[in-house]
Amino acid sequence: MNSGLLGNHFITQIGIVVNDIEKTSQAYADFFGVNKPDTIITDTVDIAQTEYRGNSSVARAKLAFFNMGSLQLELIEPDLHPSTWREYLDEHGEGPHHIAFVVEGMKEKITLLEGKQMQLLQKGEYTGGRYAYMDTFKELKVIVELLENDK
């Protein structure tokens, strides 16, 4: 089967931006009948090496993850610094921000998508890997996140 531009077609995660992660996380926990996950805060720029629209960014966010079998639901409460999360929340309000795919060869995938007019919005590091948000909104009506995990 054709695996498309990313090398696979399996959605790993759905990300939702919210104003109040504690309230929304509890609502999802109650809805799913599961324990409310711990909230974490993204690393500082010196560790995460966050870049937003080509510039270093101190933006951080509170995150909560619900592992739902083969799909993870990520809740994101951004701080007030410029980021794709803050921009999306300010322009569209709360709701779906991205769908994520695990990829191999992050730099190559970014270059491939940019060649198709899907620009890099934000990238950074996390413990065990890296992420990149690509501006696929015009074509796909949602941002695509690329996740590359260290081996």
Results as ranks from 00 to 15, higher is better:
91 E>K: 15
32 F>G: 00
117 Q>H: 15
42 T>V: 02
51 E>G: 04
134 M>R: 07
37 P>I: 00
116 K>N: 09
13 Q>K: 13
86 R>G: 01
105 G>S: 05
112 L>V: 12
116 K>H: 14
75 L>S: 03
22 E>L: 13
138 K>Y: 05
84 T>M: 09
14 I>V: 15
44 T>W: 05
139 E>I: 11
129 G>L: 09
24 T>V: 13
102 V>E: 09
128 G>W: 08
113 L>M: 02
20 D>G: 06
35 N>Q: 14
18 V>F: 02
146 L>H: 03
33 G>P: 00
129 G>P: 13
130 R>M: 05
59 A>G: 09
45 V>R: 15
127 T>Y: 10
97 H>G: 01
100 A>G: 10
147 L>P: 03
146 L>P: 12
5 L>E: 06
34 V>E: 11
126 Y>T: 08
82 P>W: 01
96 P>I: 14
2 N>A: 10
62 K>Q: 14
114 E>M: 04
79 D>V: 14
1 M>V: 13
35 N>G: 09
115 G>D: 07
6 L>S: 01
143 I>K: 01
57 S>N: 10
86 R>N: 09
129 G>T: 13
54 G>T: 01
76 I>Q: 13
80 L>A: 07
105 G>R: 08
94 E>D: 08
80 L>K: 01
109 K>G: 00
62 K>R: 15
7 G>L: 04
80 L>D: 12
107 K>Q: 14
48 A>E: 07
149 N>P: 02
106 M>L: 15
45 V>E: 14
38 D>K: 06
92 H>Y: 12
68 M>T: 11
104 E>L: 02
140 L>V: 12
98 H>D: 05
147 L>I: 15
140 L>R: 15
144 V>F: 14
70 S>W: 04
68 M>H: 04
29 A>P: 11
82 P>K: 01
141 K>T: 13
44 T>L: 09
80 L>Q: 02
114 E>W: 07
32 F>Q: 01
101 F>M: 02
110 I>T: 03
61 A>M: 03
89 L>K: 02
63 L>N: 04
64 A>C: 10
8 N>P: 06
112 L>F: 13
96 P>V: 13
91 E>F: 05
24 T>W: 01
2 N>M: 08
67 N>C: 03
68 M>E: 04
34 V>Q: 06
88 Y>T: 08
118 M>I: 05
146 L>M: 08
95 G>N: 04
78 P>N: 01
95 G>V: 03
53 R>N: 13
117 Q>G: 07
87 E>P: 08
117 Q>S: 14
78 P>M: 05
65 F>Q: 01
59 A>H: 13
144 V>R: 00
119 Q>G: 05
12 T>H: 11
143 I>C: 11
16 I>Q: 03
123 K>E: 15
91 E>D: 14
72 Q>G: 03
112 L>M: 11
24 T>F: 01
122 Q>H: 08
61 A>P: 06
2 N>T: 08
31 F>R: 00
151 K>P: 15
133 Y>V: 12
14 I>D: 02
16 I>T: 10
91 E>N: 13
95 G>R: 09
26 Q>V: 03
60 R>W: 12
1 M>Q: 13
149 N>Y: 15
29 A>C: 04
149 N>K: 09
29 A>T: 03
62 K>L: 10
80 L>H: 03
19 N>V: 02
90 D>L: 13
